[in-house]
Computed example of a mutant assay.
Amino acid sequence: MTARAILLTGAAGVVGQALLAELTGRPVICLLRRGRLPAAGPEVVTGDISRPSFGLPPEVYESLTRRVGTVIHSAALTEWGRPAEDYEGVNIAGTRHVIDFARVAGASVHYISTAFVAALAGEAPVRLRPDNVTTNYVLSKRASELLLAESGVPHSVYRPTNLIGHSTTGWTSKPQIVQLVADWVGRGRAEVFPAHPGNLIDVVAQDLCAKAVAEAIRRDDVGRQFWLTYGKAAMTVDEAVELLIEHARSTGRRIRIPRIVHPADLDEAELNALPPSSRRFVQVLGDVSEVTAASGGILPSSMSELVEEYGLPEIGDKDAFRRSLLAAAN
């Protein structure tokens, strides 16, 4: 008997592309809102997770419910700084529609959330401000987690931290905030680098995230929550800045080391004197630092558990970060 298929939402995204490289042994059906995948291979169905029944004709939807036994839900609006209502349709209603589908199909759901939900626990002395650029996005991911928890549908939740490129090649289908900030620092445009004392810089290679999800599916392992982070083993802020300076020098640039300052100590006049793009980077870095501080400065981590239980490769975050920087520079 042929194994039931995996339905992958968000297949064209960074996590989706990484997942496609790791999913083997079972047919994969990609639900795309528009366009095509960069490479041929998996079956593609055009639909919209923000609409009931994914906006599909009844016969197509019914066919999918018969064929699919597992849903990987990675589709989401991930751009920060949008109004709360912008995240409602894709992130929250989309998860609700995935749950509806899974109930009919008798399928399990593997949900890609974010490690930033740790900032909502409220146990750290720093609280996430309502106007933090990430707040509405994080709240939407947490709301989706709660929908799954209350649904009764078998599921697991994966909470990756800031994504970087492939651990070996450094490649990514789309630069993320880490790569954008790295380029900004590496071009000597960073006068200051905002960070709360005690924060660690936690990044994870996209293929490591994908390997964890793929292995859980191979084992039919549900009912779990995985923090795809380095936790206490993550880089310090000083180490991350040193790596960025080292990379800049390797490309022939001689740049000044940015001053590391507490976000609350940023000088308004100095900020206003910066070019608009640099001012925006400083503000976003300050907000991301607040997320980590609100999470206790160090994110929870399941990395050692995944290495021991799932046999995930032990990939150093600094090495993976270096490779991402090199790939972005070429």
Rank of each mutant, 00 (worst) to 15 (best):
T2L: 12
A5I: 01
A5P: 08
G10D: 06
A12M: 09
V15H: 01
Q17R: 15
T24F: 00
C30R: 03
L31P: 09
A39E: 15
E43G: 08
V45M: 06
V45G: 08
I49E: 02
E59D: 10
W80K: 01
P83C: 05
A84P: 07
E85F: 08
E88K: 02
V90S: 13
A93P: 00
I99W: 08
F101E: 01
A107E: 04
V117D: 06
E123N: 12
D131S: 08
T134Q: 09
V138T: 13
A143P: 01
P154I: 08
H155Q: 09
N162M: 12
G170H: 02
W171S: 04
T172Q: 08
T172D: 06
S173W: 05
P175V: 06
V178D: 00
Q179A: 11
L180K: 10
D183L: 04
W184E: 11
W184C: 06
R187V: 02
R189E: 13
V192W: 00
V192P: 01
G198H: 08
N199W: 03
D207Y: 01
R219G: 06
T229W: 03
T229D: 05
G231N: 13
E239P: 07
E242D: 15
I245L: 14
H247I: 09
A248P: 06
I260G: 12
V261E: 05
L271N: 07
N272L: 13
V282N: 02
V291N: 08
P300E: 04
S304Y: 01
L306V: 12
Y310F: 15
P313E: 15
D319H: 12
L326P: 01
A328P: 00
